[in-house]
C-alpha cells in the first residue's frame, strides 16, 4: 500500500504536481529558468576566456590584433553576436529576478510572474536587436560593403 502511495505521488509530480498545490520544484518553469541560467552562464564564461585572449593581442602588435578581430567581422558572425547577446541578456535579467527572490520580501510569491516579465523584456529587446544585426549581416554579405 505504501509503495502504491509513493508511486501515485510520483505520477502526480509528472502530471504537474496538482496534488501538492504547486509546491514541487521539479519540472516547474522555475527549474527551467535555473537550467537556462546555468547553461547561459557557462557559455558566456567560455567566450570571456577567448575574448580576453584575443584582446590581449593588442599587446603583441596592431597587426596581430587587427587580423584576429577580422574574423569577428565576417557577416555570418552576426549569428554568433546574436547568441552572445541573447545569452548575456537572459542571464542578466534572470539574475535580477534571482536577486529579487532572495532579497525582496515578496520575491518568492512573485517568482513566476517575474519569470514571464523577464522573458517578455528579453523578447522586446531581442526582436529589434536581431532585426538590426541580421539586416546588417545580410547587407555586408550581399551588398559588398
Amino acid at each position: 500500500m505504501a509503495s502504491t502511495t509513493a508511486h501515485s505521488a510520483g505520477a502526480a509530480d509528472r502530471a504537474g504536481n496538482a496534488r501538492l498545490g504547486g509546491t514541487l520544484y521539479r519540472g516547474d518553469p522555475g527549474m527551467w529558468s535555473w537550467v537556462a541560467h546555468r547553461i547561459t552562464g557557462v557559455l558566456v564564461f567560455f567566450f570571456l576566456f577567448v575574448h580576453v585572449l584575443d584582446t590581449a593581442l593588442v599587446r603583441v602588435s596592431p597587426n596581430a590584433y587587427d587580423v584576429v578581430i577580422e574574423t569577428y567581422k565576417h557577416p555570418v558572425m552576426v549569428l554568433f553576436e546574436l547568441g552572445l547577446v541573447g545569452a548575456v541578456l537572459y542571464h542578466a535579467l534572470n539574475g535580477i529576478r534571482v536577486m529579487l527572490v532572495d532579497f525582496w520580501s515578496k520575491g518568492t510569491k512573485y517568482q513566476k510572474p517575474m519569470l514571464w516579465t523577464i522573458l517578455a523584456i528579453w523578447l522586446v529587446v531581442m526582436i529589434p536587436g536581431s532585426y538590426y544585426l541580421l539586416v546588417k549581416g545580410f547587407a555586408d554579405l550581399f551588398g559588398g560593403s
Binding site: 569577428y72 567581422k73 542578466a92 544585426l133
Partner: peptide, 23 residues
C-alpha cells in the same frame, strides 16, 4: 556587460569599426 555589448555591437557600425586604433 550590457553597456559593453551595446557599445561594441550596436552603436555606430558595431564590430566593423573595431581595430587597434579604436582600442
Amino acid at each position: 556587460v550590457l553597456g559593453h555589448l551595446l557599445i561594441m555591437l550596436f552603436l555606430d557600425d558595431g564590430v566593423q569599426r573595431i581595430n587597434f586604433a579604436f582600442v
